[in-house]
């Protein structure tokens, strides 16, 4: 008869802000990436490799990816909040996204600092 619902989780601002800040970081990285590509001495494998040997580029890329993951997390959660009504399913999807993003993070480190 009565359709009660609970709300008032008192969060959301931090995520909303994080999404904007990470977006700015990603834009800056994109600029850096293009500049680095243009500065490549020659356009071949050696040149490509030299770009990625520079520590600046490795850390910048890691930062970019972390931002991407945070951004993606907030975005994916928003999509689930909009469209997924059953709470259990939504939590499961949240968990899946978090696990995937953590795994991607580890994978990214492996790629960047691998041989």
């Amino acid at each position: 008869m009565v359709n009660r619902h609970v709300s008032g989780a008192h969060y959301g601002l931090r995520d909303w802000l994080a999404q904007r800040i990470t977006a700015v970081v990603m834009i800056l990285y994109t600029v850096l990436f293009v500049v680095m590509l243009l500065k490549m001495p020659q356009f071949d494998y050696a040149g490509w490799r030299s770009v990625w040997m520079a520590p600046l580029m490795r850390y910048a890329t890691l930062l970019f990816l972390l931002c991407l993951f945070v951004h993606a997390w907030v975005g994916m959660r928003n999509i689930f909040m909009d469209y997924i009504k059953p709470t259990g399913l939504r939590v499961a999807l949240y968990a899946a996204v978090i696990l995937a993003l953590v795994a991607y993070g580890a994978w990214a480190v492996q790629i960047l600092w691998g041989r």
């Binding site: 008032g8 989780a9 008192h10 969060y11 959301g12 601002l13 909040m81």
Partner: peptide, 11 residues
Amino acid sequence: DNLEDPYRLFR
């Protein structure tokens, strides 16, 4: 306070 909520405002 009433609005700071992922659903109430941040949708």
